[in-house]
Simulated scan of single mutants.
Amino acid sequence: MASVNSLQWLNLTRHGESTGNLAYRAAEGTDAEETGIRERDADTPLSELGRAQAAALGRWLAALPEDERPTLVAVSPYLRTLDTARIALAETSYAHPQDPDGLRMTVDERLRDREQGILQGLTWVGVQRRHPDEADRLKRLGKFYYRPPGGESWADLALRLRSFYRDLEADAPGGRALVVTHDAIVVMTRYLVEGLTEQQVLQVEKEPVANASVTRWRHDGGGLSAVCYNECAHLVNAGVGS
């Protein structure tokens, strides 16, 4: 993907565990039609475990060699991503927002989670019961191209991410970027950077992106090359991962 090929490092992380993640897991596999998440998606906070995961992520950032440390941070505007970034960066010695010469953090709405439209807050049971036509349309079109009314398809994510990464590259050529975002954005960044097909990215998506996991690419002279995907060793070592 030419629009990020001048970056030296591209690091992505998903936010720490949120109360929404907990509610979704509690509803999954039951007869519930709704997830029980009452906040607006943008306002869903981190759980206590999520805050601990963000701190563990920060200790991993603090331990990076100097030539791998981020030179800029881009964050989704949602509360769970903002708090993940703030907690993590507070663990480092080089990223204090009060320092005018410190690491620059920008908030970008193009990094927000995928919009679910009328399906927001519903379990798969709820979708099938309340919107059976949409459930059938999803099965027919496939996850990549299906767009719920008022929401986004995975292909729509690719459109806004192409724009985001073009701007990121223009603003910081040769930089080392840390992007704090959501699982769908991590997956679709692989699609763009690695030139995956629809079938390949949907295969990737079958493995859940863990909270506060790390996915990295490094410039190898010819472009960005994958270093790790969904890496959780820093969480396991801290006792806050599986």
Rank of each mutant, 00 (worst) to 15 (best):
Leu7Pro: 03
Leu235Met: 12
Ser76Leu: 05
Gly16Lys: 08
Asp99Thr: 14
Leu22Phe: 02
Gln53Trp: 09
Thr106His: 06
Thr189His: 04
Leu72Cys: 12
Lys143Val: 14
Ala27Phe: 06
Cys232Asp: 06
Gly102Leu: 02
Leu178Arg: 00
Thr106Trp: 01
Arg190Val: 05
Pro173Ser: 00
Tyr229His: 15
Asp136Ala: 15
Gly117Ala: 03
Lys139Arg: 15
Arg140Lys: 11
Asp83Val: 14
Ala85Leu: 05
Gly241Lys: 13
Ala212Glu: 03
Leu82Gly: 07
Glu134Ile: 13
Gly239Tyr: 12
Gly239His: 08
Pro100Thr: 10
Leu192Gly: 04
Gly58Lys: 08
Asp67Glu: 14
Gly175Trp: 00
Glu17Lys: 08
Thr30Ala: 02
Leu122Phe: 14
Tyr94Trp: 13
Val209Ala: 03
Thr106Val: 15
Ser93Ala: 13
Leu122Ile: 13
Trp217Glu: 00
Asn230Leu: 08
Glu169Leu: 00
Asp113Asn: 14
Val127Lys: 10
Cys228Leu: 13
Tyr229Arg: 15
Gly175Thr: 03
Arg147Leu: 02
Asp156Asn: 11
Val227Glu: 08
Gln203Ala: 15
Ile87Glu: 00
Pro100Ser: 04
Gly150Glu: 03
Gln128Asp: 13
Arg110Gly: 02
Ala184Tyr: 07
Trp154Thr: 06
Glu39Cys: 09
